[in-house]
């Protein structure tokens, strides 16, 4: 098996897990959050106790699989450190290295937000761990705003990731 084969395999796995992650991120932001207010109170537990915990499981592990396969892919392509240096230092330079580097940093920030901000706050907000009513409310707000931040970051992140595959786009 050549390194090209493994790079192809990991790019495929990276896109699969990325769709799982960002697909669910967009589900939360475009479908669930904007419509919670329209659901009668007695029906809300169907979302908060069943749907949201299941979606959050695939969401956070999708994020984990995406960053792991992404780092492996970058290493296989031999541009991991050059890209993380945004093409400013190291042996590889060029707009596509800078672009993929920006994408990688944005993705890494988003992964951090998922595991260290959104998930701990959602556990309190959804009642998966004990918290008083005030803490629950605050946690739900922090989780929502961080989820929105990740939705915002997903737009330039995907632009950087996809454009890096088309070096001609940068002339």
């Amino acid at each position: 098996m050549t390194v090209e084969f493994w790079a192809f395999l990991f790019r495929w796995l990276h896109v699969l897990s990325g769709v799982m992650w960002i697909g669910l991120l967009w589900y939360f932001n475009f479908v669930q959050i904007p419509n919670m207010g329209k659901i009668p109170d007695e029906q809300k537990p169907a979302i908060s106790k069943v749907i949201a915990p299941a979606a959050l499981f695939w969401f956070r592990w999708g994020a984990m699989a995406t960053i792991i396969t992404g780092l492996i892919l970058a290493a296989l392509n031999d541009y991991l450190w050059n890209a993380l240096a945004l093409g400013l230092a190291g042996s590889m330079k060029g707009a596509h290295i800078t672009a993929i580097g920006f994408g990688m940093w944005l993705g890494a920030i988003m992964w951090f937000n998922v595991w260290f901000i959104i998930w701990p706050n959602q556990k309190r907000a959804l009642g998966l761990v004990e918290a008083d009513a005030d803490t629950k409310k605050k946690s739900a707000r922090i989780a929502m705003l961080t989820s929105r931040l990740n939705t915002m970051l997903s737009i330039p992140m995907l632009f950087a990731m996809v454009s890096a595959q088309n070096p001609v786009a940068y002339g």
């Binding site: 330079k93 707009a95 939705t151 915002m152 330039p156 632009f159």
Partner: peptide
């Protein structure tokens, strides 16, 4: 003041603006 991320259209708008800023930055660096 309300956080602009509380509005979904603002979130998308900010994302597009950030994309344009990054493209200009990539162009400037290289």
């Amino acid at each position: 003041m309300k956080n602009p991320l509380e509005s979904l259209p603002n979130t998308i708008g900010l994302g597009i603006v950030l994309t344009i800023v990054l493209v200009i930055l990539v162009k400037a660096i290289n």
